[in-house]
Design a protein around this nucleic acid. Sequence first.
DNA 1: ATAAATTTTTAGGCAAATCTAAAAATATAT
DNA 2: ATATATTTTTAGATTTGCCTAAAAATTTAT
Lengths: 217, 217
Amino acid sequence: MTHSEENYLKSIFHLGRNVKEVVSTNAIAELMDTKPSSVTDMIRKLSEKSLVHYKKYQGVSLTEKGAKTALSIIRKHRLWEVFLVEKLNFTWDEVHEVAEQLEHIKSEKLIDQLDELLGFPKFDPHGDPIPSKNGNFVETTKMLLNEMPIGAEGICIGVKDSSAPFLKFLDKNKIALGYKIKVLEREEFDDSFYIRIKERKIHISNQIATNLYIKII
Amino acid sequence: MTHSEENYLKSIFHLGRNVKEVVSTNAIAELMDTKPSSVTDMIRKLSEKSLVHYKKYQGVSLTEKGAKTALSIIRKHRLWEVFLVEKLNFTWDEVHEVAEQLEHIKSEKLIDQLDELLGFPKFDPHGDPIPSKNGNFVETTKMLLNEMPIGAEGICIGVKDSSAPFLKFLDKNKIALGYKIKVLEREEFDDSFYIRIKERKIHISNQIATNLYIKII
DNA sequence: ATAAATTTTTAGGCAAATCTAAAAATATAT
DNA sequence: ATATATTTTTAGATTTGCCTAAAAATTTAT
């Protein structure tokens, strides 16, 4: 399996969200920043390998085998992201590019041991779930803080805006991944929020709330 | 720089041992398990990029730039090997194949942080020196234990035979990388050795001695 | 329902990295 | 010193993954 094939499977998975859903040639081309004709070429190749279902002009979808492969690559990508943040002091916004390379390394032992080294994490630094070895992953109800009703509780699992200024702001206000959050009250006037985070009560603007992902518990 | 280009530079470095030495097309082909004609093609390409000195039929040698590149790949390879052994429970004989892949990952921060995580190691699990960021590395007088004179002292830095049985034997006899060794006496009859290793005195066969690399101190 | 717009595929080509087979240069042996 | 052997290069082909341009199929709009 080549890097390119793996990248296509990953893209089809991300666009399709679940195994059966059909994805268009143009959508893949746009996501991967390539030409539709190149996509057609690769789809045919993947089809011959029974990794996708494909009928001319009718779009493409992953087979069981294709989905399993895609999930194993996503598992590797997300485990490496955790590694980079937890062990090598990378910030959330720096990990993606390197993980894109690391996800293609072939060694089952490597990824199993990495999983163990990291303590079998369930989420990556952006709050996305890490598939298990056999392709299962927790389907979380992930929502933005500003969508949460008053009284709702959850865990901060990620950011939408991953720019340096925003991440710095979070640092300064001691808002970090894994912290428990409860919505106490909303300010009608400016749509800001009073929240409890890790036993502290703070006030945050709507703009902040629209960029924090919370896993509802 | 492609993976293939990097692999060629690494091979030329290993065959040449030092920057100026000229290496033959056939030698490269044999080491890399490829055809001489393929080597010629690549050499021309590397020459156009000023990574090697090349004159038709006269062999090839690394330029300053080529050597620097080769050393940075070797640095990455060896740091990853340390990581695999120290952090992911790989054995000495399992690391090479995976390190061959990892050495091509492009990220300066990644490798600097990895270096730090590992405590800036000077040697890889086979006892080979790890080049520094700017390409310097300790030129060790590495010799096999059986070549050491009586009374000589050193540190166990690697093995020649990296088969599983031999590594298991070392484990059982508590001989490991980094341990201090002194040759106390030689047994003329069977060429065996009495050595002190980490304050313990033991007796080892000539066959063992011919497979242990020692850095002389 | 048909014309127009869009999407998708085909056809043909290109660059990288490899190969085989044959030619050219260099090295070796008598 | 010349014939033989070896090494190295060239020429031409192949595969992978991509491209452009044009044709074919599908979708949308009137």
